[in-house]
Design a protein around this nucleic acid. Structure first.
Ligand SMILES: [Mn+2]
Ligand SMILES: [Mn+2]
Ligand SMILES: [Mn+2]
Ligand SMILES: [Mn+2]
Lengths: 218, 218
DNA sequence: TTTATACTTTTGACTAATCAAAAGTAGGAG
DNA sequence: CTCCTACTTTTGATTAGTCAAAAGTATAAA
């Protein structure tokens, strides 16, 4: 049985390694799901028996093709639901992640298809995350991390890698939303900070916060 | 913890006795949830310990005020979701019950409130079932069972008490949808059947099927 | 080569929910 | 009053998921 727990584990593995290149350690997986390492080990065993992952004990775990396909479909449901909640129900982008975390496990294929049509087959969710197609293909657009961009350049916010409600609300308050045009005014290496000019505002971000914002040339 | 299972039990108890008048037997409850009587007994114990029902062993079970309030909110979520799926996503009324059966346990109050607004605070779901208000009040409209109505009278379909996909598809195919104007042409007591004239069609229903259709004077 | 450290796995216990089958009970027929 | 029947409850087992803590392993440092 593919329970919601199984779906959450598969999705976590996929998000920790989109390209399926590296092995994920038990600890890393456990942390991303906020369960104990022992719980992760035992679920990994279950997943391996179901042919959804390959496990090399003490080294790590990796999705099989079947596991990856399932994971991508969960991500598709998650992101379509998020966009639907924002576009059709008018919810705040800072709150839809939590909601989608539950809905992703229960919405039927038919509902997802209808949402997808209503949203005109969107390619990106409210946070700039790509929405996989029904066939499992991921649209990809290459971005650059704000923390690695140059001072003075005109940039456009493309994606938020932190879905935390408070972070997203903070970002929006200072004009950091998807598509917003911004410029880095100053990079203070001593303070490890960036000063950003948005349409509304000027905001100072630590480099670790800036690392969660992806941008592209405006 | 109010799990989905608990919500399903509470909802079942409520639907088996909307007015909170009679005690529900373990067997009746078990049947309506398609679990064994033993499972129902043990869940009843859990619910009683949580103060959600009162149990008189060997006689029956009844919702407490707290249990009833919770149940009504589950029903509210269920019915708003059903209407939303029909009105906004264009799903068939014959399929939304299944979907809502899952969604009712995960949609947040905020999502329900937004759906409710978008649907303009509806009073009835796609099957004619009343939608409880956020305060727990139930709109009520008195109907009459089609099986007890008179031959020749102009009637209007008000509510379907059977949410089964196949039954609802059959009904719709013959013009039996909510609000449809119909007339009983013949009541054959020997065959235990009613012949119904709809705008499309003429259809013969057994009395037990007709008992699941509620009508009001057109 | 030994030891320390960080990490993973195993073990044992627990909660929630279920079923099959045994045991018990209420209430009516005789 | 006794027994039958239908129903309910209890018992014991099972599955899914989890945690705390003990045991085991890989690797790097001494
Ligand atoms: Mn989830
Ligand atoms: Mn997202
Ligand atoms: Mn349900
Ligand atoms: Mn309904």
């Amino acid at each position: 049985m593919i329970t919601s727990t199984v779906e959450n584990y598969l999705k976590a593995l996929f998000l920790l390694d989109q390209d399926g290149e590296k092995e994920i350690s038990t600890g890393e997986l456990a942390k991303s799901l906020t369960v104990t390492p022992g719980s992760a080990t035992s679920m990994i065993k279950t997943l391996a028996e179901a042919g959804l992952v390959e496990h090399r004990p003490h080294y790590g775990v990796r999705l099989t093709n079947r596991g990856r396909t399932l994971a991508v479909h969960v991500v598709r449901r998650h992101r379509i639901v998020e966009l639907f909640l924002v576009e059709i129900l008018g919810m705040d982008w800072s709150k839809v992640h939590e909601e989608a975390e539950q809905l992703e496990h229960v919405v039927s294929d038919e509902v997802i298809e209808r949402m997808d049509v209503l949203l005109k087959r969107p390619a990106f969710d409210p946070h700039g995350d790509p929405i996989p197609g029904a066939d499992g293909t991921l649209p990809n657009r290459s971005h650059c991390s704000l923390s690695k961009s140059n001072v003075g350049q005109q940039l456009s916010v493309a994606r938020m890698n932190d879905q935390d409600t408070d972070f997203l609300q903070f970002a929006e308050k200072h004009g950091l939303m998807i598509g917003a045009k911004i410029t880095i005014i100053e990079h203070n290496k001593l303070a490890d900070s960036l000063t950003i000019k948005t349409s509304n505002d000027t905001v100072v971000l630590g480099l670790s916060a800036a690392a969660n914002i992806e941008v592209c040339d405006a």
